[in-house]
Simulated assay, not measured.
Amino acid sequence: MSSIVRTDDIPTWGWRYRIGVLLSVGIAAINLYVGYVAAGPPMFAVGCSFLVGVGLFFTRFWNPVLYLLGVLHIGVLGVIWILSGLQFLAIGLVNGVLSLGLAAIALSLFFEEERSIQR
């Protein structure tokens, strides 16, 4: 029986995987902080959802299509920030830059992994 956590794969991950995990954790931290400071449940929920995504990434249940779901999630995050996070403009801009970086990495990993599956 194989482990749920895919620890054997971690040493082979390239820089995009590692940066993607770091960006996800950074986005989660920002949103958890804003959710805590502003007592804003939407931001807190977004922060928790990014942590769940990171946790899922380390399991054998991860599938390349989840990169696309992550990009959609990042888009929803942008809408949430525009609607309720403008009071934290500076940190919101940092969050936006991290989010754009994560979206770019997620899209590149999706296309790379899909190409390797089709071969």
Rank of each mutant, 00 (worst) to 15 (best):
Y17R: 01
I74N: 07
L83Y: 09
E112G: 03
Y67P: 01
G55V: 05
I10Q: 07
S108Q: 12
S49Y: 07
N95Q: 15
I91C: 04
N63K: 14
L69W: 12
L93E: 05
I105N: 03
F57K: 02
Y17H: 14
R6A: 06
E113Y: 04
P41K: 11
F88L: 06
M43P: 01
S99M: 04
S116I: 09
S84A: 13
A29Y: 05
A39F: 12
R16M: 10
F44L: 13
S49K: 05
G75M: 11
S49M: 13
G14H: 12
P42K: 11
A45T: 10
I30D: 07
L69T: 03
A106R: 13
W62Y: 12
A90I: 08
S2H: 14
S2N: 10
M43I: 00
F58I: 00
I4N: 11
G20M: 05
Y36G: 01
V46L: 15
Y67V: 00
N63C: 06
N31K: 07
L93N: 04
M43G: 02
R16Y: 09
P64V: 09
Y36L: 03
N31P: 00
T59Q: 12
L77A: 06
W81S: 01
I82F: 15
L109P: 02
D9W: 07
L22T: 05
S24G: 14
E114V: 03
S24Q: 03
V79E: 06
Q87A: 07
A38P: 03
S84T: 02
M1A: 06
V5Q: 06
I27L: 15
G85E: 05
V94E: 09
L83V: 00
V94G: 08
N31L: 08
D9R: 13
L77G: 01
L32E: 04
G96D: 12
V25G: 06
W62Q: 03
L100T: 03
R16Q: 09
V76P: 03
F44Y: 14
L22E: 03
L23I: 02
F50L: 05
F50D: 02
V79F: 15
V52L: 15
V97G: 08
I91M: 15
E114N: 12
W15N: 09
R119I: 08
Q118W: 10
V65W: 15
L93C: 04
L72D: 00
Q87F: 09
I91G: 06
V76L: 10
A39L: 11
V79P: 00
I74Q: 07
I117K: 14
A38G: 08
A39D: 10
T7K: 11
G75Q: 12
V37E: 15
V21M: 13
P42D: 02
Q87E: 07
G20C: 07
V37H: 11
I105H: 06
V52G: 04
V37K: 12
S84M: 12
I27A: 04
V76Y: 15
C48L: 14
L51T: 04
G92R: 14
G26R: 03
G14M: 09
V34K: 12
V79H: 14
T12C: 01
V5R: 13
G47H: 07
L56F: 15
L98H: 09
A28F: 09
R115Y: 13
G20P: 02
R6L: 02
L69D: 01
A103M: 04
F61S: 05
I4E: 13
L109N: 15
L93D: 01
A38R: 05
G20T: 03
